[in-house]
């Protein structure tokens, strides 16, 4: 049985809430006594993916599960999807708007940085339907 599960709603309409899911889950990991380097990697990967869900997916959900030997987070949005995942994974490639860049994001670093911090990254996307991003961090 999982040690912890929770489904976060990622709201793209309220900019004050951007990153709230990641902030909350980081607190949960601290409370559970997870090792600080794991907490940091998880929080950064989740935050990058949460921001992606907002700026590209128009909001969505993040389902977190903590098991004995790993943390799994599944993001789901119903945005435009990713036409070319390989291209999206390249450092510096970005389709972000000017507004997103003004927030301090949109430099094409998000997906590569998620990859760097997790044990496993899986992206399923159907153009026009949405995107599912699953990350797993070994404990």
């Amino acid at each position: 049985m999982a040690l912890f599960t929770k489904k976060y709603i990622i709201d793209a309409d309220n900019s004050l809430s951007y990153g709230q899911a990641s902030s909350n889950f980081k607190k949960v990991l601290k409370l559970l006594g997870i090792a600080p380097p794991i907490i940091k990697r998880t929080a950064i990967a989740m935050y990058e993916a949460e921001i992606n869900t907002i700026i590209h997916g128009g909001g969505g959900t993040a389902q977190v599960v903590i098991e004995d030997d790993h943390i799994k987070i599944m993001f789901e949005d119903h945005g435009p999807g990713i036409a070319d995942i390989e291209q999206a994974m390249q450092v510096g490639y970005s389709t972000a708007s000017h507004k997103v860049r003004e927030m301090g994001f949109g430099a094409g670093l998000g997906l590569p940085n998620i990859q760097k911090n997790v044990s496993e990254l899986k992206i399923d996307s159907t153009p026009g339907k949405g995107t599912k991003v699953t990350i797993r961090i070994a404990l």
Partner: peptide, 15 residues
Amino acid sequence: GLANVQLIRTAEIAD
């Protein structure tokens, strides 16, 4: 020089 809430959230996440 970025004065918005994302600066604060990023600072929190990045310790």
